[in-house]
Amino acid sequence: MASTNTETGTADSGASGVFPPFNADTFSSQLLWLAITFGLFYFLMSKIALPRISSILETRSGRIAQDLDEANRLKTESDEAIAAHEQELADAKSRAHGIAQEAKDAARVELDAKRAAVEADMAAKVADAEERIAGVKAKAMGEVGAIAEDTTAVLVDQLMSAKVTKADIAAAVSSAKV
């Protein structure tokens, strides 16, 4: 490892003859140069490198926090939009349902009214017809007695050639009719 230093190294150790790390002759130089170099290093670290790295890390964590906040804000917004959309959809559905129900009700009412009108008309016609029938019937029945009396008078006249009074015939017809 140290073969390059052989000449100077052996010359030194040959001179002092002590284990190099315990050779007090080198202490002053080592301490001075350690103080200079380590002092400089400490200065460079504390004034330049560490504040810079610290600011880099802070900027980054700040940026990450900011991005997370932004993402959360957008998420809330989109959640709200979805909720509003669903609310609107539900409203529209219920409105459509209402309209359909109304239309159905209106149709039913109209239908009922028409049916009622038709039924009333029919009933009136039926009643009218029945009344006419009853009139015709009563008239016919009223005429049955006179026809029977006429017929009876003719029959009696032709069969028996006897004169029967109209009053007898009427009595006989009405008794037979009963």
């Binding site: 490892m1 140290a2 230093n5 052989t6 100077t8 190294g9 052996t10 030194d12 150790s13 284990f19 190099p20 790390p21 050779n23 002759d25 080198t26 002053s28 130089s29 080592q30 001075l32 140069w33």
Partner: peptide, 21 residues
């Protein structure tokens, strides 16, 4: 031998050795 200190630039101040080694 690898621990030998050799002077690259011998310096001395106030009677103490401050060589660049």
């Amino acid at each position: 031998q690898q621990f030998e200190i050799s002077k690259i630039l011998p310096l001395e101040a106030l009677g103490t050795d401050i060589s660049f080694t």
